[in-house]
Amino acid sequence: MMMHESQRKSIRVDLQIIANMIEPGTRVLDVGCGSGTLLDYLVHFKQVDGRGIELSTEGVNACVSNGLSVIQGDANIDLKDYPDQAFDYVVLSQTLQAMNNPKAALEQLLRIGRHAIVSFPNFAHWRVRYHLGLRGRMPVSENLPYQWYETPNIHFCTIKDFAVLCKEMGIKVERSMSLDHEGSAIRRVDLTPFLANLFGEQAVFLLKG
């Protein structure tokens, strides 16, 4: 039942970037942890005390049957149950854009965790701009695979939008990277904000409240 070592070593690059931001031996909550790929990696290679919340039954079942501590729950509702500063890191990977109230969610993440790590698809990527600007269509790509009428992603933002929101909320951005969906072309958002916002398909932000 346990995951194979080789499976563990090859996690998606954006997850690897998140994992690199996490100090070993810390307490981590992965919000929307899916089938537990990142959590499993962190537990086994970074010896973290890891927990997860996942909405889908399949995800929860995969996690728990793999020995991970995951509850079936809705991040929109259940984050408020956790005490202040209960974790060193709260991870929200590719989920922010699907939340009812991303701003409130960010507040919760930084209330529960000393740090928050947030990754999200960048709606200002050049291909998205091309779809919208030239073709006049909502973008559908490998990274954003849904049609507008069926997408769970109800709150898209750009890297710039997100950086502005952090500033407004007084959140300190400790690290921020943009990358394409294959994980190459990694850029530091703080050094090359314009290029990051144009060529980054997604971004990973390490935040402190």
Partner: peptide
């Protein structure tokens, strides 16, 4: 609420 180690399905 007490950050216990819990799984739930």
């Amino acid at each position: 609420a007490v950050a216990a180690n819990v799984s739930f399905a």
